[in-house]
Computed example of a mutant assay.
Amino acid sequence: MTSFISHLTVDCSDAYSLSQWWKPVLGYEDVPGDPNLPGHEECMIVDPAGKGVSVLFVEVPEGKSVKNRLHLDLRPRTDLRDTEVERVIAHGATVQGDHRGKYGPGTGWVTFADPEGNEFCVLRSEAEAEVAAQSAPTEAADA
């Protein structure tokens, strides 16, 4: 028997604010019939299409102190990676590292932090990765 991922839990200091920040980044919404409100210590957001993993923000007393051992890798649904990078920067994400071109032209990712310092990366879109794979089959798959 195996297990599946029910949802991803993010420890934070303000569950409501962080859930509100992530909703437009992911295109997610509150659980239907269970809205997140200021003061809630747990706030879940879900993919309205039902295809993505739900994210639960849970308030904890301690702050983030070191690099995450687990982080989200985001792939743009429709836009190009560089367009998505600019969108999340405009939304308030902080660039932690720019690794675009790491494996050659058009490859790589950008590492960000959300308002509470949780790291996440923006990868190339599936279309960009597919074009690169056709032109350079030895290239890293996620880069």
Rank of each mutant, 00 (worst) to 15 (best):
M1I: 13
F4L: 09
T9R: 08
V10G: 00
C12E: 04
S19F: 02
W22I: 07
K23R: 12
P24I: 08
V25T: 08
Y28R: 02
D30A: 05
P32D: 05
G33P: 04
L37V: 15
E41K: 14
E41D: 12
E42V: 15
M44D: 05
I45L: 07
V46Y: 00
P48G: 11
G52H: 03
V53K: 02
V55E: 00
L56W: 06
F57H: 01
V58Q: 12
V58T: 06
E59Y: 06
V60E: 11
P61V: 05
G63C: 11
V66H: 08
P76M: 04
R77M: 12
T78I: 13
D79L: 11
L80G: 07
L80E: 04
R81M: 07
R81A: 03
D82H: 06
T83K: 08
V85C: 04
V85N: 01
V88Q: 01
V88K: 01
V88N: 02
H91C: 11
G92R: 01
A93G: 01
Q96G: 08
G97F: 10
H99A: 14
K102Y: 12
Y103T: 13
G104T: 09
G106F: 07
G106A: 09
T107W: 07
W109K: 04
W109L: 10
W109N: 10
T111R: 02
T111M: 06
F112L: 01
A113S: 09
A113H: 02
D114E: 04
D114R: 03
D114I: 04
D114F: 01
E116Y: 06
V122N: 00
S125F: 01
A127T: 11
A127S: 10
E128P: 02
E128S: 01
A129I: 07
A129Y: 00
E130D: 11
Q134S: 13
Q134A: 15
S135A: 15
P137K: 12
T138H: 15
E139S: 15
A140M: 14
A141G: 07
A141N: 11
A143M: 15
A143C: 15
A143E: 14
